[in-house]
Each structure stands twice: as structure tokens, then as C-alpha cells.
Design a protein around this nucleic acid. Structure first.
Lengths: 134, 134
DNA sequence: CGGGATCCGCACGGATACTG
DNA sequence: CAGTATCCGTGCGGATCCCG
């Protein structure tokens, strides 16, 4: 199976020079937060509480169902959200933050707070930089 | 310069369907932090203080010079780091955190702290999830 | 309604070569 | 030493179709 072989080779190569990076647990968490939608899902659930799949899709307008599902699966796997299936006539699925997810959301929210507080500074720095470059 | 045109086109396109998202300043900041290397550069500069290009390249071992340069340019543009060129025999370039960059780093570090504190929980949740799936 | 499976474009990022 | 320019593979993410 050449497909697996190629994938395995990549992982092997990664492990070779990433050994010291892999040791750091924060690295994996940062990668997880890099998933663009993770922070938004966390924020949405923190604001609204329990939400259904379609509610999340609407709240994060712009996300594809593939990405939303993928994000929710990852969060569920990491124990940050719960997924509750209720076998009603059309299936109902509720998502909610776990205590662990809630605690992470508090930290992530601090980043949001920083952004809202300093975005003007960043914006003016950006303008100044662009002015010099032109 | 077609390079700039391409970049501008992307921003234009984004603004078209992201209008309501673009309103939120935290969105742009989150995207910036998604750049995988941003947090690492911030952390490195916070730990070591002033660093030269080659020092950063070694500290973040695994990053390509393309990504490192790109990341540093973005951080400089946003006023988070300073770039100082000293015209010695071989050119010397020093990078350092601005007060703004330092304040952001404090927040980002909290995420790192959370990760180190809860990574065990995440890991066990992950194992449990995988065990169910198998 | 809440997804899984599949196809596919293209932009993201690595490798290489060259410059001041 | 500290980049810039170029080429190129691939994996991320959107679109579409289908299922329970």
C-alpha cells in the first residue's frame, strides 16, 4: 500500500527532527487552537450554553459542515465538549462545554479581551508600516 | 508586481463574505495567532530577550526561513516586534519584543500554562475516545 | 436533522538557488 | 548573515451527493 507508506514516511521524518518539540504538551494545544474554528465554537458554547448542530452552523456562519463536524469531533475527543444524541423523529444532537472546555474557554477569552483592547494599536502600527513600505 | 495583486485580491475576497466577521477585531487577532510560529517567536523573545535571525532559526528548529521571515514581517507590521539592522561586515539583524508584543505574550503564555496543567486530562480523554471508537 | 464519503482546487508551506 | 525569488507537492477546506 503505497499511500500508507508515503504517510508513514512523513511521520517518521517528522519525529526525527521534532523529537524535542513533541515533548512540549503546549505545542499540541497550540496546534489545536490554530484550528481557526475551535475558539469560535468554544466562545459560542460559553455564550449560549447548550447548542444544537444547526445552531452552531448558523452562529459560525461561513463554516462548512465538514469543518464544523471535524472541529466538534476533535473537541469531543479531547474532552472539551460533550455530544448528546437524542433519537427523536429527526435526530437531535446537542453540544455542550465540559468543565475542562469551560476552563480553556476562560483563557482563550483573555486573548479576545486583549485583542479588543489593543487592536487599535495594532491597526495604527500596521498603517504606519504600510506607509513606509509604499 | 503580481505578488501584491494576488495578496490584495485575497483580502478583497475575504471582505466580501466576511463582512460581519471582519467587524470583530478578535477575529483578526485569532487568525494571526493561528500562524503556528507566532506564539513560538513571542515566547522565544520573551525568554531570551533580543535575538538575531539565526538565533531564532535555531531556537525554533524545524521552521523554514520562509516561514520565519514571513512571521517576523507580520509581527513587525503589527508593532509586536522591532527589527534592528546593524550594517556590520556580515549584516546583523536583531529582533525584540515591543511593549505591545510583550503584553500579548503574557496572555498567550496563559494558554501555554493551561496546556501544561490540563494536558494530562486531554490525553486521557483522547485515549478513552479512541478506545470507544475501536 | 446531522452527519459520512468523495472529489477537487488552490493556497500554504517546504526545498532550492541566488543576492547584498 | 539575512534574507528574496521561484518552483512545486500536498493537505486543508469547500462543494456536492447520499444515508439513517
Amino acid at each position: 500500500m503505497p499511500t500508507m507508506t508515503a504517510a508513514q514516511q512523513r511521520e517518521q521524518a517528522k519525529l526525527a527532527y521534532d523529537s524535542f518539540l513533541a515533548e512540549c504538551p503546549s505545542r499540541q494545544l497550540l496546534d489545536r487552537l490554530s484550528d481557526k474554528w475551535v475558539a469560535l465554537v468554544l466562545a459560542a458554547l460559553a455564550d449560549e450554553g447548550t447548542m444544537r448542530y444547526s445552531q452552531l452552523a448558523r452562529r459560525l456562519a461561513g463554516v462548512s459542515q465538514k469543518m464544523l463536524t471535524q472541529t466538534l469531533r476533535a473537541l469531543e475527543r479531547d474532552g472539551l465538549v460533550t455530544r448528546t444524541v437524542t433519537p427523536t423523529v429527526p435526530v437531535t444532537v446537542d453540544y455542550d462545554l465540559t468543565p475542562l472546555g469551560a476552563s480553556l474557554q476562560v483563557v482563550v477569552r483573555q486573548v479576545k479581551v486583549w485583542a479588543e483592547a489593543h487592536m487599535d494599536d495594532v491597526r495604527s502600527a500596521r498603517d504606519a508600516y504600510d506607509a513606509r513600505g509604499a
